[in-house]
Design a protein around this nucleic acid. Structure first.
Lengths: 221, 221
DNA sequence: GCCGTTATGTGACAAACATCACAGAAAATC
DNA sequence: GATTTTCTGTGATGTTTGTCACATAACGGC
């Protein structure tokens, strides 16, 4: 398990010991929320098992998913660094185990270990790049292309871990929140991808059969 | 002029002297570009006069404006900090004077003056927040609302400087690139806003007459 | 002032997408 | 296993927005 904590894994053993001494563990049921949008940052979180989404919900009930974090990822470093409000509401998508280090303890660790701070800051810069790409995607791409991009993203994330067939575990409603579309549009597009042999659909799952065709959708269409 | 350089203005006099010794000046004609998307970062730039946009251009000629920087702003800190490619192409929108400090010199300054580094890093975090809001805007808001938001943004930017009537100097084509819409849609919506007494249109300019009505569009609609 | 260039307004039409409505299927609960 | 809840597929319809086409207006250079 320790191996999957990319945030702390490469630090000196001495620091890792300290990390363990200030780290809290929490288990979550699916649907349970960890913090709410607008709340002050209290900690930096690492997913030890399961999957967590960070999302914004509009007054009229629409959900926009900012990011999905899985085993080994950490999330929401921005509020910890700048001390301002949470960017979204974090919700467990599955049963999940969460490790967290309170802000103050984390800052103390950073003072002792500048490399840790540098890593987190670097990831925030990467986040700017990621968001700009996503913005471009939302502006210039249609739903089918955005879906294909989301599926290819999933492949990239899972490729490191498992090497079997890649299955994205999300409801179509959640996928809709991720690509910025209505659930019905997602359903129609996925069904068509199913007919084209690109994916195989089950309740709450999308099994990806043909990554090459997905790349074609993104490139040509 | 020195007063408008918010990036360096609050540093100790000693550092400011050093800044001046490594700072380059460049003047630009409207339309002239400073660097291109994908190019390696070479410097951090401050706008001393005029206005500069950072934009991405798609293969089929569509332009998406990432940000507009005006007198006193600096831009594109992310590539300077992470050493990776430029996020977009920077183009002068007007005649402009640019000050710039080469990456290496800038990093040397940061080593001497951690406050400078902290400021830039802090602004990158703010950029993440800004981009997430923009993404939400693109997902949930229609063109009229996005236009109203862009105009209110302009008010916020100019409020500090001038106190007269607020005029946004952009072509409708550029506005379209900023809000992610076609030029025609922008024209139609602005015309309607003109009929509603919210704005007054001239070639290349939008004079904002009624900020209150803009806020209503953003809030209610 | 004249003329080429660039910016704007607007109608007609097409495409993409959201919305509404509802049926069936799969899972969860008891 | 029956019932309830959640998820999914799909038709019908309307809205928003993009696209194409063209007229007109404003500006810039000479």
């Amino acid at each position: 398990m320790m191996d999957t904590q990319r945030l702390f894994a490469h630090l000196p053993e001495e620091i890792q010991t300290k990390v363990r001494s200030v780290m809290h563990v929490q288990t979550l049921e699916p649907g349970e929320s960890i913090f709410h949008q607008g709340a002050p940052a209290t900690a930096i979180y690492v997913v030890a098992s399961g999957r967590v989404k960070v999302a914004r919900v509009t007054p009229d009930g629409y959900e926009s998913i900012l990011c999905v974090r899985r085993s080994g990822d950490y999330f929401c470093p921005v509020p910890v660094l700048d001390g301002k409000a949470q960017l979204g509401t974090a919700i467990a998508m599955t049963e999940a185990t969460l490790l967290w280090v309170e802000c103050e303890a984390f800052h103390a660790l950073c003072r002792e270990c500048p490399q840790l701070l540098a890593t987190v800051q670097g990831d925030c810069l990467a986040e700017v790049r990621y968001l700009l790409n996503r913005l471009e995607t939302f502006t210039f791409r249609n739903i089918k292309e955005r879906l294909a991009i989301a599926l290819l993203d999933e492949i990239r994330h899972q490729h490191a871990e498992a090497s079997g067939p890649i299955v994205l575990s999300m409801t179509q409603q959640e996928l809709a929140g991720l690509v910025g579309a209505s659930r019905e549009s997602v359903s129609r597009n996925l069904t068509q991808m199913g007919q084209d042999g690109i994916v195989e659909l089950r309740r709450g799952k999308v099994r990806i059969l043909d990554a090459e065709k997905l790349r074609k959708i993104v490139a040509i269409e």
